[in-house]
Amino acid sequence: MADALHTSEARIVAASRVQDMVFAVLGITVLLMAMAVLATLVADLMSDGLARIDQQFLTSFPSRRPESAGILSAWVGTTLIMLVTAFLAIPLGVGAGIYLEEYAPKHWMTDVIEINVSNLAGVPSIIYGLLALGFFVYGLGMGQTILVGGMVLALLILPIVIVATREAVRSVPSGLRESAYGVGCNRWQVVWRYVLPAARPGILTGAIVGLSRAIGETAPIITIGALTFIAFLPPSPIQATAPFVNFDWLNSPFTVMPIQMFNWISRPQAGFHVNAAATGLLLLLMTLVMNGFAIFLRYHLRRSLRS
């Protein structure tokens, strides 16, 4: 009798161990599958497009012949748009994040803002494009310029920066605040001198993740009517004569890398698909490097918090 009990218990134990094993294997399989998709995607892009990336490709304008086409105007456009986006989204997002964590009193208005930010994070990017088309391009008559492109992407990544800022600010120990107030700082001095420097790595991580998202965004830029065939560069931001900087480029038409890629995918000729793959590979490289850097930062941040 006792023996029977013993063996039945042993059987249950063995069975549950098997179940756990099976599930763990299942989990790893799913994980491997997801990674396999990523790996296949990278391999596919490489086999299609790696050979196409050369100096000619980087320094040529688009062309009707795939072999002589390039992404010069696209990568210049992407760079300039990112400048505008970073310049707008980071201060705005950090400001809003700090307000929500350090200033906001607990009442309905704060609640409204909070629901808002969370909702904005989920608004499809193409809707931002429609906003920019109806409001910036036609409502304000700004046209399809680099400035508008940068603005729409800034709005798009604003929630990412806000959320990252809030998390970073929240993780600043409250003892730091108390001692800063203790030496007589006012709220802004506490934030500026002590809270922000402590939250900087976290904020930076969020900003990088946001910008890497913006680099790959296509839909909102298409929606505002960005051209796909740009055979010139915007005016240079730097000039030889005083005041040495020039903001005419903000009002220039533009194209960006994802748009150029989309345009080439839509062409029937296989040659353009090769160009698309090469552009995609470069895009992928940029976003992966940026995200890799963000992950690295976060990892270091965690380590330095622990010690």
Binding site: G175, L176, E178, S179, A180, Y181, G182, V183, G184, Y194, P197, A198
Partner: peptide, 15 residues
């Protein structure tokens, strides 16, 4: 706080 200084239980220097 400018007139009255305070030292807390746990040492909490600024980073």
């Amino acid at each position: 706080r400018l007139l009255v200084g305070m030292v807390f239980q746990k040492p909490n220097p600024f980073p």
